[in-house]
Structures are given as structure tokens and as C-alpha cells.
């Protein structure tokens, strides 16, 4: 059923006024809607048919049967409503992804008082996922979210619905969680590494592996010094216990720099930086990231990469 555009707009506005964005939502009567399902209408039709039959056959028992069906329907209203009422939803985790691909948002459902069975969650217009939340527990659910462009993609309105227990009525609510997913820039290959610092600023440093250390000198042994670094040869010569000292090379740490890409559009800059983050990460090169308003110290590893990508996605507002 499609409503005319003005009514649709008005309805959307009314919904967002009635259901404001919030990081945590407990479903209550303000938020819950209920309406019979197709089968519910069919069921009511059957009840009416039995009613007519009971009247025509002048059979009070058949009539009672139709009343029982109607009563079950009425009672089902309460039970269906109850299945959603009191259910809490709050932000779960969030998994970023590249723009034009998809990320996913975690939603945690919790219930303090009663069991909630067979709840369906979905973004409007997408496939739903089912979950049950027993009393006093929490259940988490990940929902895929299309990321149309780079940046913070705010969680769309989510539909929470259930037809449990009889399938005669559908109860639903719209939840707008104050939740977002970061969309990383799409990597864009470029020849020039927008980096400075270290010995070599232009090309990727291929030599000089991390941890390659140079000998500097000796000092007398102190408790706690590694036995491997003791100058055993000297000890054998009778010079006493001495510890060999080493030091890190000064170079080899790269700073990916926003400013190195002057004259390129914002999104493109971010895409190029993204590409280089991935390249350097793959080569296990320590790298830092300098963006206007944010500096990430040089490092390597998965967490560092994610941090860098998230920074690129969040630019220019780092939360």
C-alpha cells in the first residue's frame, strides 16, 4: 500500500516526532502499533462463518465455538502486544566497511521482565532477521547496512515486529537508534606515496626491517639485564660482566600526510590515503597518519589499520 507523497511525508515526520532518536529504547505503548495480519482477517472470517452457521442451524454450541474463536483473537491482542512491550534495544557494536559496500551495525536486545519470542528486526525495506530474547538476558544481532558514501552513515529507522504467539496480529514498532556505521573511503591507487618523515619520503621503504638494531656500546651489568646481551666474550677475557647496548635506527617511520596531497579534492585525498594505508599495512611498514585535526602515531598491525581507516572515514569530525 503506497500512500500519496504528502501524506507519506507527513506520516514520516509524525513518526520521527513520536519516536525520537536515542541510543537506548524500551518499547512501550507509545511506540507499539498493532494490526491484524492477513491470516488474522481470514480467521475472523472463519469465526463469522461459524457464527452464521450457528445461527442458521440454531446450534448454540457452534455459536459458542465462533465466540471462542473471537475471544481467542481478543486475548491474542494482549499476548501479541505483550511480546513486544518491555523489550529494550540499544546500540551494539558497529563494523565499518568501504563506501559502496556494506558495513553492519550491532543491536543489542534485552529484556528484564519477560520472554520475548520470535522478534523480527529489519531496516525498512530490507530482509529481516529473527531473534528471541528470554527474560533477564541480552541478545545481540548484526544487521547489514548498505554504505552509499564515505563518512558516518547513521542507522536508518528500524522496524521491530512480531506476530507471536498466534500469528493473528502483527505488532510492530519503529526504532531509531542513535547509532552509526563508518564508511571508509574507497581506496584509489596512486603512484606517489603522500608521506614524509623517516629517511625516505618518496618511495616505499623496502629495506630496513623493523627491529633491525645497531650496536652502540657497552655498559656494566645491572640486575635485570638480559643474559643474551651480556658480553660473554669479554667476561671470559676477565673484563667482568658487561651488557651490550643497541639502538633503533632513526628512520623507517612514515607519516601519511593530508597536506602532501595539495590540490586534490577532499574525497579523492581520503581515497588515496586509504590506498596507502592498505599498502603499507600489507608490507608491515609502520606508518603514522596526519589529518587536519587528528594525528595517529606511527604503528603497525590490524588495530592500527582499523584506527587509521576509521579516522579517514570520520573526517572531518572525529568523535
Amino acid at each position: 500500500m503506497r500512500l500519496p507523497a504528502p501524506i507519506q511525508n507527513y506520516y514520516q515526520r509524525w513518526l520521527s516526532r513520536r519516536l525520537p532518536r536515542s541510543p537506548l529504547v524500551i518499547l512501550n505503548q507509545r511506540r507499539i502499533f498493532i494490526f491484524p495480519t492477513g491470516y488474522g482477517f481470514f480467521y475472523l472470517g472463519v469465526a463469522s462463518l461459524l457464527f452464521v452457521g450457528g445461527i442458521n442451524y440454531e446450534n448454540n454450541l457452534v455459536l459458542s465455538l465462533s465466540f471462542l474463536l473471537a475471544s481467542l483473537f481478543l486475548v491474542a491482542i494482549l499476548h501479541t502486544y505483550q511480546n513486544l512491550s518491555g523489550l529494550g534495544l540499544r546500540n551494539g557494536g558497529s563494523e565499518s566497511g568501504y563506501a559502496a559496500e556494506s558495513g553492519s551495525l550491532g543491536v543489542t536486545l534485552f529484556s528484564e521482565r519477560r520472554d520475548h519470542y520470535c522478534i523480527w528486526l529489519k531496516w525498512e525495506g530490507q530482509a529481516a532477521q529473527q531473534i528471541s530474547v528470554p527474560a533477564g538476558t541480552e541478545s545481540a544481532l548484526w544487521l547489514n547496512l548498505a554504505l552509499p558514501r564515505r563518512g558516518r552513515v547513521v542507522a536508518p529507522r528500524m522496524k521491530v515486529e512480531s506476530v507471536f504467539p498466534l500469528g493473528l496480529l502483527r505488532t510492530w514498532s519503529y526504532v531509531s537508534l542513535e547509532h552509526y556505521c563508518l564508511a571508509w573511503p574507497t581506496p584509489q591507487a596512486s603512484q606517489e606515496c603522500p608521506a614524509d618523515g623517516g629517511d625516505e619520503t618518496v618511495q616505499v621503504v623496502s629495506s630496513g626491517k623493523a627491529g633491525n638494531e645497531e650496536f652502540r656500546g657497552l655498559r656494566s651489568y645491572v640486575a635485570g639485564d638480559s643474559l643474551r646481551r651480556i658480553d660473554w666474550k669479554g667476561y671470559a677475557r676477565g673484563t667482568g660482566l658487561n651488557t651490550k647496548l643497541f639502538e633503533d635506527p632513526a628512520g623507517g617511520r612514515l607519516w601519511l600526510n593530508w597536506d602532501a596531497l595539495e590540490g586534490v579534492g577532499t574525497e579523492q585525498r581520503l581515497s588515496i590515503l586509504c590506498y596507502w594505508v592498505l599498502v603499507l599495512d600489507q608490507q608491515q611498514q609502520p606508518y603514522g597518519l596526519k589529518l587536519p585535526g587528528l594525528t595517529l602515531a606511527p604503528d603497525t598491525g590490524d588495530n592500527h589499520r582499523l584506527r587509521a581507516l576509521d579516522a579517514l572515514a570520520a573526517y572531518p569530525e572525529f568523535g
Partner: peptide, 23 residues
């Protein structure tokens, strides 16, 4: 108070102690 700088070539004996031959 004592301070130990840990490195990748350190052995358990470096922490706990070791019997050393005194020439």
C-alpha cells in the same frame, strides 16, 4: 625497587636468577 627491561631474547633465568661459574 628493581627495574627490568624486557627484550625478545630474554630467558626465564634472566628474571628468576641463575647459577654462575665464578672463574
Amino acid at each position: 625497587y628493581r627495574r627490568v627491561q624486557f627484550t625478545s631474547d630474554m630467558l626465564p633465568a634472566d628474571i628468576l636468577g641463575v647459577s654462575v661459574f665464578n672463574p
